[in-house]
């Protein structure tokens, strides 16, 4: 049974339809990359999975259970972890408080967060708004890990970050997947980065899947991916 199963999902905001009859699945421990140009529905897909976009039809199943009507906070408690594009660090909470506010019992705790990114430990008394972009992203990832998810949804995690930081984050994400067996869904504009971090990939255009394949194959024949993501 797949961990997450999306079947013929049509979703959007209000009356506007962004995703049309989309179907996909993610197995436990699997890495899926979602590629595509701006505005093709990548973020909406994440919002729909987390319960923040309007689901018009279709179904969402988590470990076999229908969650299409489940409130967003319960989805988070079931093990869906989402790192939003905006990062949304709480500015007047310290780094440590930002982590503790999300804490749920499980294998991953404060110490693990600091082991993962020692820089966060150095900054643990800093306010959330006194962090660099890279530190904010590290904090956003750890805050989601504190909820002890089984699936990690990452929305443009490398956007606006210096190449050195991107490399560090990529190495960490790879290690997390290898050691803890997280399933991940990663949405990225930088297709090569996302393909390198995943097992499988889908390419979206205008709310539909236009290309699907193993990441290694798509990397080897990148021209067909570029067709759909070139601006």
């Amino acid at each position: 049974m797949p961990l997450l199963e999306v079947e013929r999902l049509t979703a959007g905001y209000g009356e506007a339809v962004v995703l049309e009859e989309m179907s996909l699945s993610v197995d436990d421990g699997e890495g899926l990359a979602v590629l595509g140009r701006n505005g093709v529905g990548k973020t909406t897909l994440m919002l729909a999975i987390m319960g923040h976009a309007r689901r018009l039809s279709g179904s969402l199943r988590w470990q076999g259970t229908e969650i299409g009507g489940t409130p967003a906070y319960q989805r988070a408690r079931m093990g869906l972890g989402w790192v939003p594009q905006e990062r949304d660090i709480f500015p007047s909470l310290t780094v440590e408080e930002n982590l503790l506010v999300a804490g749920r019992p499980g294998a991953f705790g404060l110490k693990d967060a600091y082991d993962l990114f020692p820089r966060l430990k150095e900054r643990r008394r800093n306010m959330g708004d006194k962090l660099s972009g890279g530190e904010q992203q590290m904090l956003a990832i750890c805050r989601t890990l504190m909820t002890n998810p089984r699936l990690l949804l990452l929305d443009e995690p490398f956007e606006g970050l210096a190449p050195v930081i991107v490399e560090e984050l990529e190495a960490t994400l790879r290690r997390l997947r290898a050691e803890k067996g997280f399933a991940t869904v990663i949405v990225e504009q930088h297709a090569e980065d996302a393909l390198a971090l995943s097992d499988r990939a889908i390419v979206l255009d205008r709310g539909k899947i236009v290309l699907e394949g193993r990441s290694a194959d798509l990397l080897a024949d990148f021209a067909q991916v570029r067709r759909w993501i070139a601006v």
Binding site: M50, A76, F90, P91, S92
Partner: peptide, 16 residues
């Protein structure tokens, strides 16, 4: 305090 600062973010970390 999280609710005060960013109420939209709270459900995503499992807070009712």
């Amino acid at each position: 305090r999280g609710i005060r600062e960013n109420v939209r973010r709270m459900p995503a970390i499992g807070a009712p």
